[in-house]
Design a protein around this nucleic acid. Structure first.
Length: 257
DNA sequence: ATGGTTGAATGTCAA
């Protein structure tokens, strides 16, 4: 089973990139973030023509998540299903073929100390509780998406310089660690303990890709039994070099499932 | 240099 994640930075602007990638790679599941579109304007037919069912949680202009699945989607949870957090479209959970798939677009945080920073930390704490209240680490579960945190020195191009800035801050590390305490394993890092690989390159940094100025902020986590069945995690650098790319690229995990 | 680029929406915000 192949399960992938991609921050599209607009599903409509990225439709050619998405469709060509799906046709070549044929994942069973693709989690998309930053779809930037309301559900009734989502380009459904193009994905359904490739054999996918869709679960959508979108909003106008910003945010938005979508999960595509080739196996039937048995149930969907949109967001946290409560009023404790602003109703940003950043979370969608599906059940398919006995698996729970949680797709998130974690808040960016803007700058340390800003209102958005406070919101990011609160969102991470809320997500930790969502996991613990609704799911069990003994059941097959995958959490994937844009987590907007590069958690180790290997996950960002200049850790000493960037430590303490948004995306590479100890307060983020501790919130992420608390989430993972549920019983989740970073599939890429488990298989590539010493590798340096990025999934995001800032549009505003000139020639960031060629200069290696990237971040690994798109992650695929799994509960222990599922993580033990992970054979490979591929990061598709070539897709980031194509015409009109997203600022992120595709990450895909292959499981013996 | 508080810059740079991209997308949604059409002024300006978010990333």
């Amino acid at each position: 089973m192949r399960i992938a994640t991609y921050n599209a930075a607009s599903v409509r602007a990225r439709l050619p990139r998405l469709l060509e990638w799906l046709e070549v790679n044929e994942p069973d599941i693709l989690a998309i973030q930053e779809t930037k579109v309301e559900d009734d304007k989502f380009p459904r037919e193009e994905f359904e023509a490739l054999g996918y069912e869709l679960a959508l949680n979108g909003q106008k202009a910003w945010n938005g998540v979508a999960t595509l699945s080739r196996t039937p989607i048995d149930s969907v949870i949109r967001g946290f299903e409560d009023e404790l957090m602003p109703s940003d479209a950043r979370l969608i959970t599906i059940q398919t073929s006995g698996l729970t798939i949680i797709n998130t677009y974690v808040p960016n945080g803007n700058t340390v100390g800003s209102d958005k920073w406070t919101y990011k930390l609160a969102w991470l704490e809320r997500f930790r509780r969502f996991l613990r209240e609704r799911f069990s680490p003994s059941a097959p579960l995958i959490w994937l998406g844009d987590v907007n945190i590069a958690p180790t020195p290997l996950d960002v191009y200049d850790s000493p310089k960037l430590l303490g800035s948004v995306g590479h801050h100890p307060d983020e590390f501790s919130r992420l660690a608390a989430i993972l305490d549920f019983g989740l394993i970073d599939c890429y890092r488990a298989l590539n303990a010493d590798e340096r690989a990025y999934t995001f390159w800032d549009f505003t940094v000139p020639r960031a890709l060629d200069r290696g100025l990237g971040w690994r902020i798109d992650h695929i986590y799994a509960t222990p039994d599922v993580a033990g069945l992970c054979r490979e995690v591929q990061i598709d650098f070539d897709a980031r070099r194509k015409e009109k790319p997203s600022d992120h690229t595709f990450v895909m995990a292959t499981f013996d499932l």
